[in-house]
Amino acid sequence: MTTDVLAPSASRPARLRPRASARVAQGWEVRIGHALMIALSLVCVFPVYWMLVTSLRPPGDIYSTALWPDAASIENYAYAIRAIPMGRMLLNTFAVSAAVTAIQLATGILAGYAFARWKFPGSGLLMAAVALTWLVPLQVVMIPNYLLVAQLGMIDTLGSLILPHVASAFAILLLAQAMRSFPREVIEAARMDGAGHAHILWQVVLPNLRGTLAALSILIFISTWNEYFWPLLLTRTPENSVVQIGLQMFITAEGTQWGPLMAASTMASLPILLIYLVLQRQVISSFMKSGLR
C-alpha cells in the first residue's frame, strides 16, 4: 500500500521536468524575439532621429557626430520658412494627397465591387487589362499625360497633379480581392431583405473592410505625398508646387544646405506621421474586431 501510494508522487517531478524546460525555452524564444524587434526598431527610427538632431544643430556644428547638439537652435527652421513658401507647399501637398486618396478610394470601391459581384461577358479580360496597366511605368505615359494636361490649360495648377491619378489599378485589384473574400451568405441575406447593390455596398460590405480601406489610404496618401517627378514636370512657381520640390531647392550646384534641408524634411514628415498614427489605430481596431467575430 505504501509503495503504491508513493510511487506516483516520486515519479511526478520527472514528468514535470519536460514541461518546465519547454516553458523556459519558450520564454527565452520570446525574449530573443523581443530583443530583435527592439534592435530593428532602433535601426529604423535612428535616421528619423538623426534628421531631427541635424535640423537643430547650429550652422557651424552641422557635421558634428554628437547624439544631441550642445546648443539646440531653430535657426534652420526659420531659414527654411524664409527661403521657400513652406506653409503653402505643405498645404498644396496635403490637398493633392487627400484628393487623390479620396478619388482613388471611390473609383476602387465601385470598380472592385463590380468585378467582385457582377459577372458579364469580357469581365475577365477587362480585369486583366486593368492589371496590365499596373505594370506600365510612368515614363511610358508621361508624354501623353503632359500633352493632355497642356491642351486642357492646366499647367502649373493643382488639378494637373490630381487628374492623372483618378484611378489606380492597385486599389481596384486589392478591393476586388477583399470583396471576393467577403462572406456571400451575408450578402444573400441582405438581398433577401430587399437591399439593393448600393445599400449592400455602403451599409454591409464597406463597414467590414475598414482595415483594408485604412491600409490602402495610408499607401495612396504616402505615395502621393512623396511624388516628385510629375510635380517637377508640371509646376512652374513655388506657390503652386508641392513640398518635395521645395526640398530639392536646398540642393544646388554650390552645395547642399544640410541644416535647412533637414529642417524642411522634418516639417514635411510630421503631417504624414500623424496621419499614419491615426489610421494605424483604425487598422488595428478593425483587425481585432474581425478576430473576435
Rank of each mutant, 00 (worst) to 15 (best):
A189L: 03
P137T: 02
T157E: 05
G33H: 07
V204Y: 00
W225S: 00
S21G: 08
L138W: 08
A169I: 05
R19F: 11
R57C: 09
F287D: 06
Q203N: 15
L67H: 04
L42H: 03
A198H: 10
S290P: 07
P207H: 01
A20W: 10
W230F: 01
A83T: 11
H197E: 15
I272L: 04
L135W: 07
S9N: 11
T107A: 06
G87N: 09
I218H: 03
G259W: 06
I74W: 14
S269R: 01
V100S: 01
L274S: 04
M37V: 12
R31N: 10
M288Y: 04
Q257G: 05
M179F: 14
M267Q: 10
G112Q: 02
Q244H: 01
A190T: 05
G259N: 05
G60C: 05
T256G: 08
S168G: 11
V149K: 01
I251T: 13
H34F: 14
A129T: 11
V100Y: 06
G27P: 11
M51I: 03
Q257N: 11
I162Y: 09
P8W: 03
R82T: 03
A22T: 05
S269H: 02
N240F: 09
E254G: 15
Q151G: 07
V141D: 07
I143A: 12
S21A: 14
D156I: 04
A150Q: 14
F182E: 01
A178S: 15
R210N: 03
T212A: 13
T133S: 12
I275W: 10
L52V: 09
N92W: 01
S286R: 02
